[in-house]
Simulated scan of single mutants.
Amino acid sequence: MQAGKLVVLTGPSGVGKGTLLRSLLQRHPDLYVSISVTTRAPRPGEVDGQHYYFVNRTEFERMVAGGELLEWAEFAGNYYGTPRLAVEQQVQQGKCVILEIELEGARQVRQTFPTAFRIFILPPSLNELEFRIRNRGQDSEDAIARRLQRARAEIDAASEFDIQIINDDFEKALTEIEAALLAPVHCYSA
C-alpha cells in the first residue's frame, strides 16, 4: 500500500481556513481531517470529538508530556494540538490527511514531517481580515486585537510555505487548493 500524504493548511485566524476546508471535504469526502485538541471553550454549535476534542489545561499538558501530540501551540490564551496517533495511522493507510493548524504548529510539523505539503491562506488585506473577525461576533475587543496583531506576524511567514493562496474570491481559492491537492506529488495520483 502506498503511504498517504500530510497536508498542512495554515493562515491567520478569520482568513476562512475552516470554511474552505468544509467545502473541500464536501467535494472530496475521502480526505481525512485531523481533529485538534484544545483547551478553549466550545463555541455555539461545536461538538466534542467532531469539531475539536475539548480538554482542560491539565489534561493537555499531560498529553504534551506524554508525547501524544504531533504539534501544539498556545494561541489567544488557549492550547491547541494535533493528536499524533490518528494522523500517523491515516497516513500509513494511504490517506491524504489535512491539518488545519496555526503557524507555530505548522513550523513544528515542518520539523517532524518534512515531506508535508504546506499551504498558507492569505486574506486580501488586513482590513478585510479585521472585518471578517468582527463579523463572526465571537470575540471580545481584546481578543480581536490579539488576533490581528498575531495575523500580521503570521502573514510575514507566508513565504515559508509551499504555496500561498489569497482568499479574496472563495471559489477561486477553493479551486486553487483543489488543483494543488490533485497534483500527483501531493494527494492524488493522475
Rank of each mutant, 00 (worst) to 15 (best):
L69C: 02
L69E: 04
L69F: 08
L70N: 05
E71L: 06
E71I: 01
W72S: 09
A73Y: 07
F75W: 14
F75D: 07
A76L: 15
A76C: 14
A76I: 15
G77S: 10
G77C: 04
G77A: 06
N78F: 13
Y79F: 14
T82R: 03
P83G: 10
P83C: 10
R84W: 11
R84N: 04
A86M: 06
A86F: 14
A86G: 07
E88P: 00
Q89D: 12
V91D: 08
V91A: 05
Q93P: 00
G94Q: 11
V97S: 04
V97I: 09
V97F: 08
V97G: 00
I98L: 15
L99M: 03
L99F: 06
L99Q: 05
E100H: 05
E100D: 15
E100Y: 07
E102N: 13
E102M: 12
E102S: 12
L103S: 07
E104K: 12
G105R: 08
G105L: 10
A106L: 09
A106I: 02
R107T: 01
Q108K: 07
Q108Y: 04
Q108W: 04
V109D: 03
R110Q: 12
Q111C: 03
T112V: 09
T112L: 07
F113D: 04
T115R: 14
A116M: 09
F117K: 00
F117S: 02
F117G: 00
R118I: 01
I119R: 04
I119P: 02
I119Y: 09
I119T: 06
F120P: 00
F120W: 06
F120L: 01
I121E: 08
L122P: 00
P123C: 10
P123A: 08
P123L: 07
P124L: 10
P124R: 11
L126C: 04
N127W: 11
N127I: 05
E128V: 12
E130K: 07
R132V: 02
R132L: 05
R132T: 03
I133R: 02
I133Q: 01
I133Y: 03
I133C: 00
I133H: 01
R134E: 05
R134S: 00
R134T: 00
N135Y: 11
N135A: 15
N135V: 01
N135H: 13
G137I: 07
Q138E: 14
D139R: 08
S140T: 15
E141N: 12
D142G: 14
D142W: 10
A143L: 13
A143M: 13
I144W: 09
A145E: 14
A145N: 11
R146C: 03
R146H: 10
R147I: 01
R147T: 02
R152Q: 14
A153G: 04
A153V: 10
E154R: 04
I155R: 02
D156V: 01
A157F: 08
A157N: 05
A158H: 11
E160G: 02
I165Y: 10
I165E: 06
I165K: 00
I166C: 11
N167T: 09
N167F: 08
N167M: 08
N167L: 07
D168A: 09
D168L: 05
D169P: 03
D169N: 15
E171G: 01
E171I: 01
K172I: 06
K172L: 09
A173M: 04
L174N: 05
